[in-house]
Design a protein around this nucleic acid. Structure first.
Length: 188
DNA sequence: CTTAGGATCGCCT
DNA sequence: GGCGATCCTAAGC
């Protein structure tokens, strides 16, 4: 398959892909919004699930780029990643927050709340809002139910340390849309 | 605004 | 048995 989806080359390093994904619109079965927050993870990265090699859980990270890696977090939530680099490398980008734009009623139903600011502001929240589960693991991003629409040209991206990890906490591989109020935590 | 605890499961030592 | 790439609620400042 082509590694380029929504004008993004997923064979690039994860920190580049993570930055380029800001502003891209992500839809799952026609429901979603603009990506406003991402985090990059790589094989040579103590904070990454791929750091210690392939397991049953992370095997999708070692598959082809421009596919998904979906994992269960804290036994409760689902989290969505986009695989990048070459097939077998073990790099990915965690999708951390969306600005809801499409199918807001559906997302409100799934989340059991109204406030648009809280629908997709966090990796677990956005998977619940978009209905992403284990069944979406390993799927390609250039075919249904996934849909990626290119970002506008004028996006301004900010970066900082990643959230909720205990290793490599000083690596600035969290990226956000400048000024967005839909990020999961403010950037300083 | 910040902090703390509980829910709950798969992988690790 | 321990510990997360989390979230929610409650309580304190």
């Amino acid at each position: 398959m082509n590694d380029t989806v929504a004008s993004i080359d997923f064979s690039a390093p994860s920190n580049e892909v993570a930055r380029l994904l800001i502003g891209v619109t992500l839809l799952v079965d026609g429901v979603g919004g603009r990506i406003v927050e991402t985090e990059a993870y790589d094989r040579e990265d103590p904070a990454s699930h791929s750091f210690s090699g392939p397991t049953l859980r992370n095997i999708s990270m070692f598959g082809p780029p421009a596919h998904t890696y979906v994992y269960r977090s804290y036994g409760i939530h689902w989290c969505l990643n986009f695989v990048c680099r070459e097939d077998g490398h073990g790099a990915g980008v965690l999708i951390r927050a969306l600005e809801p734009t499409t199918g807001i009623e559906r997302m409100q139903q799934r989340r059991g709340m109204e406030n648009p600011r809280l629908l997709c502001s966090g990796p677990g929240r956005l998977c619940q809002a978009l209905g992403v589960t284990r069944e979406h693991n390993g799927m390609r991003l250039d075919a249904p139910p996934f849909q990626l629409l290119p970002a506008p040209k004028d996006v301004v991206v900010v970066s900082g340390p990643r959230i909720g990890i205990s290793k490599a906490i000083d690596v600035p591989w969290r990226f956000g849309l400048a000024g967005s109020r839909f990020v999961s935590h403010p950037f300083r």
